[in-house]
Structure formats: structure tokens, C-alpha cells
Design a protein around this nucleic acid. Structure first.
Lengths: 211, 211
DNA sequence: GTCACTGTTGCAGTCACTGCATTCAAACCT
DNA sequence: AGGTTTGAATGCAGTGACTGCAACAGTGAC
């Protein structure tokens, strides 16, 4: 029909990357509401059906395939550590490096796009809830370690699961904070946003007030 | 045309309530995915256009018009109090009584429906973010009070806004916990779910571990 | 060459949601 | 009472996200 010979055989990874790039570019230029899936498809040179073969939703394409996950090695160390709980726990959540887009500038543009769109920001935050379960189990183990170390009684041990849940939710809130400040710094042009180290001292001060 | 004489003049409130009731009933019976807006409209005896005149989205009809809000009187007391910060702050968020549905059993059915649907649960949680801004300002005022009382220095005062944001996010996580346990208790049939009083002692124990 | 595999596609259809113009009952006015 | 205004409800046509299905075309294996 045209000069393009049927299906482009460029492999899953390339097509996926092309979609992500097109999506970010368009949203950066026109804003979230003004961009349709059809526009993204056209820019990426694929059909709409192909788009939805690669991404479950329009939002997913904008957020990318790199999801936050728990660093298993760090989790093992965290469980037996006796350092500041929240600050250490905040360091558990990472993004798997091999899932990151090949083009590094894409990350920056994505952070920019996401931080300027309430809808995307909300979706981004929702992703964190996906790992909350895993997180809760790790925190339960850590609390158990702490309790045993302190020689806790029966009643206190029984309350640990519930406490783990509270801590997990507190932590989820904290991760949202980290995400937001990261996005904000990125949007403002400040190059390397905060890590969790910077957070530790501040958290300590905050927690002292909570009692 | 039919026996029904044109548009039912039953007032906004009644129609809204009818939609809410129909929505909850259907989702309770068939599950979220199996219920379409058309079905809700038919059950409520209205047109689809009317549905969207009353609710912005399908989700909104299921969650109801009663949104969480900050109790202004409680907020004023909170700012000058020197009690446990997080536990007290968790008590600030209420649902305006006059916004609650007339039929009390509707609330129970709604909590049940929402707690069994991840999508709705997520939307419910999103609503909390709407008041986070207001919350942050109140917490900033409270932190300022605390700081002045303790005779804080210049540097510490400058850090207060950032601290207020951290506390707000921690608190947001905590409110999600309260909401979840409430929903869980309701789903399990346990009649009166926890209040924030019950939370206070537990929180104290948790926070002691966070340092 | 044939065959299985896989990435891609078109198409038809569903569902959520919107803008616009219209209708009808009730309240208001004279 | 008769005319006007108002506000809830509606029909309709259209957009945009998303799905299921069947088909098609390069790619590599035998």
C-alpha cells in the first residue's frame, strides 16, 4: 500500500521505547489533556492496537516501564540493622537500573512531565502501593528483631503485625514526600535531587517532635 | 408518552441519593467491573446525561458526596496543644455530618463495596490528597508554636516549612491506615470501627521505635 | 520450501464522558 | 388566571480509551 513494507520488525524493546519517547515528547509540548493515544501512535509510527499491546493504559506509557521495587539485598541488611527505622526503610525502594530507558534525558523529561500533571502524579503514587505488601512483611521482620533484642513480652509481640502496618503506611507517606521533592527539584532545574541520606537528619528532628 | 409525566421534579438531593443507592446496590451485587453507568441509570430511573449532571465520574457516585474535611474548631485547638502531634492531627479529619446520606445503612454498604474494590479504594485514598494542602498549613502553625515554646533558633525556624511537609505526608499515610482499618472492620462485620483515641497509645509505641 | 513464532494490524464494538440544544414542571410575577 | 422564568432532566451526536478477534507478514528453524 505504501512504501513502508508491512509490520516493522524492530523488536519489542525498540517499539516500546519509541512509544515512551513519543508520549513524553507530545505531553511535554501540548500537555496531558491535549494528547490522545492516536497522536502518540502517529508520532511513534505504529497502530493504536500495537500501542495497547505494549502498554495497558495511556498513563502507563507516560510513566514508563521502570517501576519502583525493593532492593532485596538492602532489605536483608535492613532487617537486622538497629539504625533509624524510617530513614533506613526509605532507602529500600529503588528503581531497577535495567528497566530504565536507554536515553537518560528521557528520564528527566518524564519527571518534568509527571510533576506537572496531577493525574500522572497520582498514578505515579499509586504504583508505590503495589509494593506496600512486600514492604510490610519486611518491616514486620525488622520490628520482630528489634522486639526480641529488647526482650519484649508476649503482648507486645502480638501487637507487632499491627504496628508493622502503621509503620508501613507512615513509610508510604514518606516515600510520597521523597518522590514529590524529587519531582519538584527536577522541575525547578536543580540537577541531582535529594537522596535518603539527606532525609535522615531531618527525619530525626521531626520524629523527636512527634512524641 | 408513558405513565411517568416527563422529568421527575424530585429535587437535586433526592435524585443524587437515588443514584448513590442504585450504584452501591448494583456494585455490591455484581462487582465493580460488571456494573455500567447505564445500568445504574436504569436502576435509578434517570437518563445517563442526568447521571453525569450529578456526578463527575462513575467512581464519584460510588464514593458519595461526603468528602473528608478538616474540622476547623479542632484545628484551632490542635495548633496550640502540646499533646502527641500525629495522633492529635489524625483526629482533625472528619466527614461533614450534613453531607452524609440520609439512609445510615447506605454508609455501611458503601464501606463494604469500597473496601472490596482496589480501584475504589485507590480513588478513596486520592480524596485525602485534596486536603493535604490545608493540613500542611495547620501543621506548620503547630510546629511554629512548638518551636517558639522551646525557644528554637533561627536555623530551626527556617526549616519548619519543610518539616511541616514531611509530617503532613507521614500523616497522610496514617490517615490511609485509619481508613483501611475502618473499611476492614466494616467488611468483617465488626460494628464500630476504631477511632483515633485507640490509635494514640499504639502510635506512641510505634514512634518510640522510629528514633 | 514449509512451518511455527511473534510483532503488528484493521475492525468492530463497549464504555466513560462531554457539549449543545430542548423540554417540561414548578415557582414566580402581574 | 395567564404569562414568564428557572432549573432539573433529557436526547443525541460525538470523542477518546480500551478490548477481542481474526488475519497478515517478516524471522528463524528444520
Amino acid at each position: 500500500m505504501s512504501t513502508e513494507p508491512g509490520p516493522r520488525r524492530r523488536g519489542v524493546a525498540e517499539t516500546t521505547a519509541a512509544i515512551e519517547r513519543a508520549a513524553i515528547d507530545l505531553v511535554t509540548e501540548h500537555g496531558y489533556d491535549q494528547v490522545t493515544v492516536d497522536m502518540i501512535c502517529q508520532a511513534a509510527g505504529i497502530s493504536q492496537r500495537t500501542f495497547f499491546n505494549h502498554f495497558k493504559t495511556k498513563d502507563a506509557a507516560l510513566l514508563g516501564t521502570d517501576e519502583p521495587a525493593i532492593d532485596q539485598q538492602a532489605a536483608r541488611e535492613f532487617i537486622v540493622s538497629d539504625g533509624p527505622l524510617l530513614a533506613e526503610a526509605a532507602g529500600l525502594v529503588r528503581i531497577e537500573p535495567d528497566r530504565l530507558p536507554a536515553d537518560p534525558s528521557l528520564i528527566m523529561r518524564r519527571i518534568n512531565a509527571v510533576s506537572q500533571n496531577p493525574v500522572l502524579l497520582a498514578r505515579q503514587m499509586e504504583r508505590l502501593t503495589a509494593i506496600e505488601d512486600e514492604l510490610r512483611q519486611i518491616i514486620a521482620l525488622r520490628l520482630r528483631q528489634d522486639a526480641l533484642r529488647d526482650g519484649a513480652d508476649e503482648a507486645e509481640l502480638a501487637d507487632l503485625p499491627e504496628q508493622a502496618e502503621i509503620v508501613t503506611h507512615l513509610l508510604a507517606g514518606l516515600m510520597r514526600y521523597v518522590g514529590m521533592s524529587w519531582a519538584r527539584a527536577a522541575a525547578a532545574g536543580t540537577p541531582p535531587p535529594i537522596g535518603t541520606e539527606h532525609l535522615a537528619e531531618r527525619l530525626e528532628r521531626v520524629i523527636r517532635k512527634l512524641g
